Amino acid sequence: MPSSRRPHALVWTAQRVEAWRQTGQRPSVAVWTTEQTATFLSFVAADWLVVMWWLIALHGLRRGEAAGLRWAYVDLDAGVAMIEQ
Rank of each mutant, 00 (worst) to 15 (best):
S3W: 11
S3Q: 15
S4D: 13
R5N: 10
R6N: 10
P7W: 00
H8I: 12
H8W: 03
L10P: 02
L10C: 08
W12H: 03
W12D: 05
W12L: 02
A14E: 14
A14M: 04
A14C: 01
V17H: 09
E18Q: 14
W20V: 02
W20R: 11
R21C: 08
Q22G: 05
Q22K: 13
T23V: 06
T23F: 04
G24H: 04
R26C: 09
P27L: 01
S28V: 11
S28I: 09
V29W: 08
V29L: 14
V29R: 10
V31E: 12
V31K: 08
W32Y: 11
W32M: 14
T37R: 08
A38C: 09
A38G: 07
T39P: 00
L41R: 04
S42D: 12
F43Q: 09
F43Y: 11
V44I: 06
A46V: 09
A46R: 12
D47I: 00
W48A: 14
V50T: 10
V50P: 00
V51I: 10
M52V: 12
W54I: 15
L55T: 03
I56P: 00
A57N: 03
A57G: 08
L58D: 02
H59G: 02
H59W: 07
G60R: 00
R62F: 04
R62Q: 09
R63E: 09
R63H: 08
G64T: 03
G64S: 07
E65P: 07
E65R: 02
E65K: 02
R70P: 04
R70V: 06
A72C: 12
A72I: 14
Y73K: 12
V74A: 03
V74Y: 05
V74H: 03
V74L: 09
D75R: 06
L76C: 10
L76K: 06
D77H: 09
D77C: 03
D77S: 12
G79Q: 06
V80E: 07
A81C: 09
I83D: 06
I83R: 07
E84S: 13
E84T: 15
Q85V: 15
